[in-house]
Amino acid sequence: MSADDVSKEQVLILHDGDLTETVRMLAAAKAIRAHHRTARITLLTGPEFEGMLKHCIYFNAVEPSLRDVAKKGFFERMKLARASHFDVVYDLGSGEAGQKLKGAMRFSRARWIRAVPEPNDPGHPLDIVAGKLGAAGLGKTHYSLGEAPGPEADWIDFVARRSRTLEPAYFGLQNAYVLFAPAGDEVKPAYRWPKERWASLAHQMLQRGIEPAIVGGPSAREIGRYIAHVTPGARDLTGRANLVQLAGLGRRANFAFGEDAGLLHLLVATGAPAVMFHPGEDAPHFRAPRGRHPTLLMHAPTLAQISVAEAVQAMRFAGGFAPAPEAA
């Protein structure tokens, strides 16, 4: 750390969660950056998403050692806290590790701000966290459903300028395309849209001159291969792109379809309009992805009840047949 950095206000953000929670955290991180414009902001997190978060402009440094620090003995954590020189610590969801650090931070001069949805807090996590930050001086103290800003990943444009591996052409996508983000095999089949429907939707897209690309991690490879096999012209990218590359694809996509999985939340944050399939009797208002463009929620007791025609109509309603957005 340089002398200039030492003279700046020092802010620490703690967060450790799955991909959905990590994408949502970006909304709070943007608000914190706007409030602490000249501060040096460090994100202390887990290792899973370091490769993506290190490119985010809201942080000056990303340290993936939260769990390792929490494993240290209390007196060692206390010494680290005293030597940290942090002025403010924002706990945006760090679990047990964060609670251990909070105990040690009592011996430092840092102000501790906890902005985490509690089990009994009603509403969408983004609105709840924004209100808690507001109570700490970062805006309004209450947000109605859908009122708080969603996460944004438009900073991925800066990465794309330096690497062609984020461009659609790198994956063979030359014209208009739509992204399919099906849940992987870790989700029970009863809670997934049938693979036959995905294949039929891919066929419908090809007939309209829009190339379908199936994205996801290793757990989605089986359905990706099935769709590409049954529907020649569909492109199976499952297991071939990391999160930064997938964010790059999202920023140029005409549309995205997916189930309630972290990847869909990331694609929506990059600016892609989307449809989310969700099983159950109740609409998932408190789980919906949020971004610059609309996300339509399609829910049914079982997802097999949602037809391909309904999915296409939802895409049309949300503007998915409009020209793809141009990245900056």
Rank of each mutant, 00 (worst) to 15 (best):
E21A: 15
E21L: 05
V23G: 07
L26I: 13
A28L: 03
A31P: 00
R33V: 06
R37G: 07
T38D: 15
A39M: 05
A39R: 02
I41M: 04
I41K: 00
T42F: 01
T42K: 09
E48W: 01
H55D: 12
H55C: 05
C56Y: 10
F59E: 08
P64H: 10
R67G: 13
R67Q: 15
R67D: 13
D68V: 08
F74G: 05
F75D: 13
L80V: 03
A81I: 06
L92Y: 09
A97M: 07
A97F: 03
Q99T: 12
G103H: 08
A104T: 06
R106H: 12
R106Y: 10
S108I: 06
S108H: 06
A110V: 09
R111G: 09
W112G: 11
A115W: 03
V116W: 05
E118W: 01
P119V: 09
P122H: 03
D127L: 05
D127I: 04
A130S: 13
G131L: 07
L133P: 10
G137T: 10
L138C: 12
G139H: 04
K140W: 04
H142P: 00
H142F: 13
H142C: 10
L145F: 13
E147W: 00
G150E: 03
P151G: 10
A153W: 08
D154F: 07
I156G: 06
I156A: 12
D157M: 00
F158M: 07
R161S: 11
S163F: 00
